[in-house]
């Protein structure tokens, strides 16, 4: 493998470059600091990129994350003990001469890339990320590094997320076309739901939006953390007639559930990057697919690697084969990590 970005001379002095960071099946191990990034089982010390359940799990001795991610984890797992907040831009000294900095990843509220530095070597772990603007969280910042550990959820060239304005427009059009019905939007309860609501508000939709009970606490937390979401009401408190002509938001799992029988003739929508593929929408019985994703699409994944320009890319999860192939075609170093337990089916 040739590599346009050859190993710079300073690394040649180190006997085993990057041996201090290891990809294990259940997470990334920072050896000298004896801590783990996004471990999928309980550990003594964890660095957590963001609050989604496949990255943030309860039961660690100590959890280092952004205050927003810690608040989200506390809401889900009651993990106030052992929580150590790290502000965006702050650099923490870990054991064994390792430092960790938290940098916005643009994925969901509180999401961070983690920059680890040791012996002059820089490793960035993106967690999940996107490059599109999102009113609910600060944007991704490109951080030069030697090893760039990236996700590849939408790592196939067929994934191109359209502008979100276009998809929100589709939603509002369906609402206008069916004044006696409601549009039921399935959206991931953390991040996607709040982003869709915030984008609806940005598009001038100030009507009440009705929530599935499972969405309530997370939406309240977003508001407490400074993300206004407007007039939100609970489906449980509303009559069928009150919800006619309105947007209802629920977790994807509730879309085809008996729960939706209480809604007035719902048009089933789902906000997800997977909606780009017709059969994926059909599998979920979705009538109105909204291609809205909190992950980078193919163009963004590859452009980000070019901008970051690392010595080597490590790919955590997703369509890693295709992203590996892209690296090969562009003569860049890359390898896939066989991590277990990361799923993004609901994005």
């Amino acid at each position: 493998m040739g590599g346009t970005n050859a190993l710079s001379p300073r690394y040649r002095a180190v006997s085993a470059p990057f041996s201090w960071i290891r990809a294990e099946p259940h997470g990334i191990h920072v050896v000298p600091a004896d801590c783990w990034v996004d471990p999928s089982r309980p550990v003594d010390r964890a660095l957590v990129t963001h609050g989604h359940a496949d990255h943030a799990r309860g039961g660690h001795g100590q959890t280092v994350a952004t205050p927003e991610t810690l608040a989200i984890m506390d809401l889900r797992y009651n993990t106030r003990e052992g929580a150590l907040p790290a502000q965006y831009g702050e650099t923490l000294a870990l054991a064994g001469g390792v430092t960790a900095s938290f940098i916005p990843a643009g994925h969901v509220l509180g999401s961070a890339q983690i920059l680890l530095e040791h012996a002059g070597e820089r490793v960035v772990i993106t967690g999940d990320y996107k490059r599109r603007p999102d009113p609910t969280c600060p944007p991704f910042e490109v951080t030069p590094c030697d090893i760039f550990i990236t996700e590849a959820t939408f790592g196939l060239p067929l994934f191109t997320h359209p502008p979100i304005e276009q998809e929100i427009g589709k939603l509002l059009q369906a609402l206008a076309d069916h004044p006696d019905a409601c549009v039921l939007v399935g959206a991931y309860a953390l991040g996607k739901a709040q982003r869709v609501i915030a984008e609806l508000r940005a598009a001038g939709h100030h009507q009440p939006i009705y929530l599935h009970g499972a969405m309530e606490r997370m939406c309240r937390l977003y508001e407490e953390l400074g993300v206004p979401l407007g007039d939100l009401r609970l489906v449980a408190d509303a009559t069928k007639d009150q919800m006619r002509g309105h947007v209802v938001v629920c977790p994807p799992s509730a879309l085809n559930d008996r729960w939706s029988r209480r809604l007035p003739d719902p048009i089933t929508a789902m906000a997800s990057g997977w909606m780009r593929v017709r059969q994926r929408a059909r599998q979920r019985n979705v009538e109105l697919p909204l291609i809205i994703s909190d992950h980078a699409d193919w163009g963004e994944l590859t452009a980000t690697v070019e901008e970051v320009n690392p010595y080597e890319t490590w790919i955590t999860h997703g369509r890693e084969e295709a992203l590996l192939r892209w690296h090969e075609l562009h003569q860049r170093r890359a390898r896939a990590l066989a991590l277990v337990g990361y799923e993004d089916e609901d994005d």
Binding site: L156, Q279, R319, E321
Partner: peptide, 11 residues
């Protein structure tokens, strides 16, 4: 290769 991976994914 990218075509085949994509075709396999989409079905």
């Amino acid at each position: 290769v990218l075509w085949t991976l994509s075709r396999d994914f989409v079905g």
